[in-house]
Design a protein around this nucleic acid. Sequence first.
RNA 1: GCUUUUAUCUGUCAAGUAC
Length: 351
Amino acid sequence: TVTYNSLITNYGKVGQVDEAIQCLEEMKAKGVRRDTVTYNALISAFLRIGDIDGAVTALENMTSDHVRRDATTYNAILDAFAKSGGFDDVWRWLGRMKEDRIRRDVVTYTVLIDALFKAGDYDNVVRMYEEMRDDGIVPSTVTYNLLITVFARRREMPRVLAAFQEMRDECVSPDLVTFNSLIDAYCKSNDVAGAIQAFSDMRQARLRPSIITFNTLIDAHVRQNDMEGALLVVEEMKRTRVRLDEITFNTLLKGLLREGGTESDILELFQEMARSGIRPGTVTVNLVSDALSAQGRVSELMALFDGMKAAGAKPDVKAYANLVQSLARVGDLQAAESYVEAMRRDGLEPT
RNA sequence: GCUUUUAUCUGUCAAGUAC
């Protein structure tokens, strides 16, 4: 059974849902016992390709196959509905979970808190956390990580630190994500010194910084208009063989644009980007078009925009809108028209 | 006791701040 379960899991991870279903059929044919993990793995496979209906069907098939559902089964479905914004479905499935007499666990509550947070419903985030504690559930590392992120977004540094302290008090061990979230919290409060302190605490805890750690630190410096500090972080990434990604470059680009970098500075960064094997993305285009249109640098914007498109970037409606508006403002209606055309060719509707 | 299934972190816009 465990062998088959692993197979299903692995097919699911690479998006081969049909093969995963085959495994289940083979188990039935050969009389191999299916258990809760079997179905949970299959449900997870469906959800990974975004097929909620398939996942629900699998959940329902558990009954006829005489396999018990557990909290993991429901958590997976709840998370999928929460992430697709189907709040009514979330509440409906919570009800079904209760009818099925499955108790909510720490993951259930964390999923719910995350859903409320993403919906911007802070009051209910707090309420749900209290409900969880009243239910006798102890928060996990992930729950605390989420709370740190929630408070960071609201710029409530004292609460961030209180959550971090509470973690220690309850002997819940901080992990890489905890420190990344903590560093980001300092970063968002414009406290680079705090961010650097947290970074060194992280090393004390013998955790290895990830690409996200470094990208966050770069952003901390960029927010202070400290490009030199940001570039030092990049040096450390190279030294420690951490790869750079599109986010790394976009963050650097943000800093460069903010301090009014020239077109050639920008092109230089793009070249470095290409050397690292990274193509500009939609966010890259947005960064450039927002900054240059605000600064009235229309011809540079047009040239860079074309260059990014040629390099494979996919501008979105907002990027086009910025460019077209800027062109119209300087009276170049002909060029503006041509971009409206290009926009249609990309399958985007002008607004 | 161990193995297989579900939740959390970084860039644009947003948010926030000011009027």
